[in-house]
Design a binder for these strands. Structure first.
Lengths: 243, 243
DNA sequence: TTTAGCTACGAACACTGTTCGCGTCAAGTA
DNA sequence: TACTTGACGCGAACAGTGTTCGTAGCTAAA
């Protein structure tokens, strides 16, 4: 690991004001290492915990040191997003299996974002243009085109699909971060929410109360699968109607 | 407006250390007034400009004064969201016109959020439970039920629809706020984005480059109408398949 | 008249992203 | 070998954030 030549170490003279030990354990400051550290913080504590000082702390230095490798926090987050998009595995388009492939792709994206807490928040109003993000877009669009969708419909649908997918992943992963820090707090929030809906006056909210448990039923997978089905069926019906 | 009894005013003795003139022009501090002020700031400069100090400034006071009427910033934003949800006009369900009504409802929601910059960001991981928000949910669900959708499908679909709608509104309204402060900066961003996609190597990104202008084509309304069509057709196909 | 309680709010705390300018160190040049 | 140059590192500072605390002032009840 160490790039310092291995020499027999000499004790640092105690009268040296700053030993500046340049310990080989301390990871060298690079953009890659900074992105890794940032992602680790997000995975451990969520987006709100990410700060330049926190990242710098991992390298035993101050926040100012990071700005030599990263223009600002926004760029750092963009780099993290692209790193994570590199984890997404989308299959190469096969016209005979495009429906299954689309499902696979959407689950792949969702799972990756669900695994990184509320990182999905970072791509709310953003267009990811990193290399890994572009690779994913390319493959997703290829699957849609393989399914016989027109260029315009493919482009529109890709937007719609990735928006829904990322939001679903964010909803899953964000549950570990939002609405309280501990599991207990979060459980209390959700039961309180459930009780609140149950306590609504039926006279003013007839539909809402008649639905009852249907509103909160279904886990993340079931709801996500529903969304995929609706979108897929919708896209197919739309293209059928178009021609 | 003033709740102080109307008495003939006496000049304030100049030896009073603090005249504390209690000018009637200065709006009285109430929760409603605070929410209004917060919304005005969001409308004028976006969510990032909203801070407790900025709100307090409008009442010629410090941020600490607000905490008597609002628990914290999170609650203030929730109140703003519910205020804005009160602007949404969703028609009462009519089984014969449910498709048109659903379109109307979705456009109503989107338009309202498009009119309030990036306020939509506030309901990313949140479940709006204010009275106005509940009224909107009630009416939206009633339309879906009137369309013959099952309770579970209605509940799932309502989630899916409102998510898509709010995000679309956010995309429209957020364009006035994100990617630069001035129109010029934002225009530069979008042309740079367009040029970047045009400059991608066709060997690595065959689909992406072959789509060309289709990726960036269509204004907000066209893309939103596409999404509505896909979702509507999908929901209908899903229910048909179910039975 | 005194007390109690409520509203208001300046000051402070612990943070944030970012910039400035100084120090240190390694490589290149004379 | 001595000197210079330039890149990197980073402490300190700036202007901002949400929130809490203690205290002042005023009003209404005792």
């Amino acid at each position: 690991m160490s790039e310092v030549p291995e020499v027999a170490e000499v004790p640092v003279p105690p009268w040296r004001t700053s030993p500046r030990s340049r310990s080989p354990r301390k990871p060298t400051l690079t953009q890659e290492a900074i992105v890794t550290a940032a992602l680790e913080i997000i995975d451990a504590e969520g987006m709100d915990a990410l700060s330049m000082r926190r990242v710098a702390q991992r390298f035993d230095t101050g926040a100012a040191s990071l700005y030599a490798y990263v223009a600002n926090k926004e760029e750092l987050v963009e780099l993290v997003v692209d790193r994570v998009n590199g984890e997404v595995r989308i299959p190469l388009a096969d016209p005979d299996r495009w429906r299954e492939q689309l499902r696979e792709a959407m689950f792949a994206i969702r799972d990756v974002y669900a695994a990184h807490r509320d990182l999905g928040r970072a791509l709310i109003g953003a267009v990811p243009i990193g290399p890994n993000s572009l690779d994913s877009s390319e493959r997703l669009l290829a699957i849609l085109r393989a399914g016989g969708l027109s260029p315009k419909v493919s482009a529109f649908a890709a937007d719609l699909l990735s928006m829904y997918t990322v939001m679903s992943g964010l909803e899953m992963g964000g549950q570990n971060t939002m609405h309280g820090a501990t599991d207990e707090e979060r459980g209390a929030y959700y039961t309180a929410l459930h009780d609140y809906f149950a306590s609504l006056p039926a006279a003013r909210f007839p539909t809402l109360t008649s639905l009852g448990d249907a509103l909160t039923s279904g886990d993340g997978d079931e709801r996500f699968a529903f969304g995929i089905d609706v979108l897929l069926l919708g896209m197919i019906a739309y293209t059928d109607r178009e021609s």
